[in-house]
Amino acid sequence: MAKARDLNTLSVDQLDDELVKLKKQQFNLRFQKATGQLENTAQVRQARRDIARIRTVASAKRAEAK
């Protein structure tokens, strides 16, 4: 996923769209892990960190807009 400096170029709406996409990915990864189909378990951790990164950038942009 992109780094925070790359995410700064996106608008808040684009960040929200990306967040929804990552939340779906996280759900699918958790489901695969529970059923034993997930080979690379590090993907769960990476998805979680990407979600946190997007939320941080989006909240900073919203605070900046106020």
Rank of each mutant, 00 (worst) to 15 (best):
K21F: 11
M1D: 09
R30N: 15
E39N: 11
A47R: 08
L15K: 09
L15M: 10
L7W: 03
T35Q: 04
L22F: 13
R5P: 00
R45M: 05
D13C: 01
R53A: 13
R53P: 04
L19C: 08
L19M: 13
A65W: 08
D17M: 07
T56C: 02
T56H: 10
T41Y: 05
G36M: 02
Q43K: 13
Q25Y: 09
V44T: 10
R55E: 14
S11G: 08
Q25D: 12
L19Y: 13
D13Q: 09
T56M: 08
M1P: 10
G36V: 01
L10T: 01
F27M: 01
E39D: 11
S59W: 04
V20H: 14
D13E: 13
K61L: 08
Q43N: 06
A60E: 10
A65H: 11
T9C: 01
I51K: 07
R5M: 06
N8H: 07
A47Y: 08
A52K: 12
N8R: 13
K33F: 00
A47C: 12
D17N: 15
D17F: 07
S11V: 02
A42Q: 13
K33M: 00
T9K: 12
N40L: 03
A58H: 00
D6E: 15
K33R: 00
Q37R: 14
L38I: 04
G36F: 01
R62M: 06
R45S: 13
T35A: 01
A58S: 10
R5L: 07
Q26L: 15
I51M: 10
Q25N: 14
Q46R: 12
T41L: 05
N28T: 04
N28G: 10
E39L: 05
N8I: 01
L38A: 04
N40G: 02
A4E: 15
Q43F: 03
K3E: 14
E18S: 10
D6G: 04
T9M: 02
A52Y: 03
D17H: 09
T41R: 10
V20D: 15
R45P: 00
D17W: 05
Q14I: 03
I51N: 08
T35S: 04
R49T: 05
A58C: 00
N8Y: 05
R48T: 10
Q14W: 06
I54P: 01
D16Y: 03
E64D: 13
K33P: 00
Q26S: 07
A65V: 07
R30I: 02
R55Y: 01
N40W: 02
L15T: 06
R30Y: 06
Q43V: 02
L10V: 01
Q14M: 11
K23Q: 15
R62L: 09
R48M: 06
K3M: 10
G36Q: 03
K61I: 05
Q43G: 03
E39I: 07
A47F: 05
D17A: 13
I51A: 09
S11N: 05
Q46G: 03
R55S: 06
K21L: 11
N28F: 08
K3C: 09
Q32C: 02
K3T: 15
V20N: 15
M1W: 08
A47N: 11
T9Q: 10
R62Q: 12
A60C: 03
L22M: 11
Q32K: 11
Q37I: 02
D50S: 12
